[in-house]
Design a protein around this nucleic acid. Structure first.
Lengths: 246, 246
DNA sequence: GCGTTCGCTTGATCCAAGTCAACCACGATT
DNA sequence: AATCGTGGTTGACTTGGATCAAGCGAACGC
């Protein structure tokens, strides 16, 4: 793992990025490619960038010309309404793509902010399109990734539209747990990278409600919470909470 | 306009469908293509199908192999949870695409149901992928359409996560109005194709709440409602309702 | 080491929307 | 014309989560 930048700035590095030896390749865009294809993708994904905690990867309104793969770290995306209200639309971790929303208007439609010091790979979109005209597998996988994003959003709509507070939080924790597991981390123990307020914004709840739900889950023995440190003690308990109409 | 099928069944017709003389082509997939490219798309979009009001175009769980363009009519998509709760994830009208969610898992993840007698064009997905490897413009436009779907979903998340009942309904009406306008219909007068219950499901509200909000809008002179017939009397009033933190 | 700040927790109160229930309007059926 | 069913409206009441407010603990700057 490379060291973090010592300067306080976003740093552009010319380190040779290589999908071919990235351990996230099976989670990320290169999924399913053979060696020769991978090397062609390497040429495309040439810039890696460090984003410090709290900095923007991009902002709503900026011109879109690349999508970003998260190499390490953790992001949130959010949308701001004219009247000041905002909503977190997602949390993204290593191996996931950012910026897909920008394709439609050629401008980013949300902000992407690092929740911890992170590293991303920039993928110039027009070059991705031309490469995917040549590599069938890449094209298809990219379509799957976009479609998966749509399905994920439907899940969030379901959550916001039909679930009560505790169900939402249970669903959220189970989803995080499952994504950490896919990345080789513990499914039962992790640190939240976001605040209660950010969780609340994502789940359509106020931070106090999130906090109370955490406390309740702890009282009932489903989890152990200590600030941002979460241990899941009873997965099935959480699953049951999620499915039962009160 | 073709006549409705006289049989009670979904009918498969071999009418020569042609994007090239479809008046929705500028709203739909063919956007931006030249004549020669349009003809190649015509070959691909060969099957047109009629779906009667209340019938499914596809169901969650079915194998995915095509996306669908709505030639005429009106659809809703919904997702069903194991515990019986369901949520309408969208309403689609002529020129819009259905089925994009199925790409990710190769199975449809929601149900698509006609809210009035409708006609769709089936677009075999693997053939669309190969054609878009050859036609740059088609590829790019398809990516834009998928991305637009993601942006739309973020809008719904915003609505469900941060807006109160009347704001949601105002946003919904303005969105419908805008889409009808884009199709050459009146922006101020239209018939709702869906029930109060379906609107409520989409907006994360109960049907009674939707009904009360309609009544309130009417009392305040923003709209005139008579069952499913809506006239918008004061667009700015609705817009103001949407943006103001109470 | 100490004060300040930020994020989190907890309690008391309030209110928007949900729930339950009655009733109405319009179409379809006979 | 009478009946039935579905969808819509409206009222009375309840409630889950928001709001307001106080206090606490960990992290950070000086």
């Amino acid at each position: 793992m490379p060291q973090h930048s010592t300067s306080g700035e976003i740093s552009l590095s010319v380190i040779k990025t290589a999908c071919s030896n990235c351990n996230l390749r099976e989670l990320c865009l290169p999924f399913g490619l053979n060696i020769e294809e991978l090397e062609r993708l390497d040429d495309l994904v040439s810039t890696r960038r460090r984003i410090k905690r709290g900095d923007h990867l991009y902002r709503a309104g900026e011109a879109f010309d690349a999508i970003y793969a998260i190499r390490s770290g953790f992001f949130k995306t959010d949308v701001l309404l004219e009247d000041g209200r905002d909503q977190v639309t997602g949390f993204q971790m290593a191996g996931e793509l950012l910026g897909l929303d920008g394709i439609s208007t050629e401008h980013h439609t949300c902000n992407a902010i690092a929740l911890e010091d992170s590293e991303i790979c920039a993928i110039p979109f027009s070059r991705l399109e031309s490469l995917s005209r040549e590599i069938h597998t890449l094209q298809h996988h990219f379509h799957k990734v976009m479609s998966r994003e749509i399905v994920r959003d439907h899940g969030v709509m379901m959550l916001l539209g039909t679930m009560r507070a505790e169900e939402r939080l249970a669903a959220f924790l189970l989803n995080l747990s499952q994504r950490f597991t896919a990345r080789g981390f513990s499914h039962a123990e992790f640190y939240l990278r976001m605040t209660r307020d950010e969780i609340g914004s994502y789940l359509g709840l106020k931070l106090e409600t999130v906090s109370r739900a955490f406390s309740r889950f702890q009282e009932e023995g489903h989890i152990a919470v200590q600030q941002k440190h979460i241990r899941i003690l009873n997965v099935n308990g959480l699953k049951a909470l999620m499915n039962h109409r009160s």
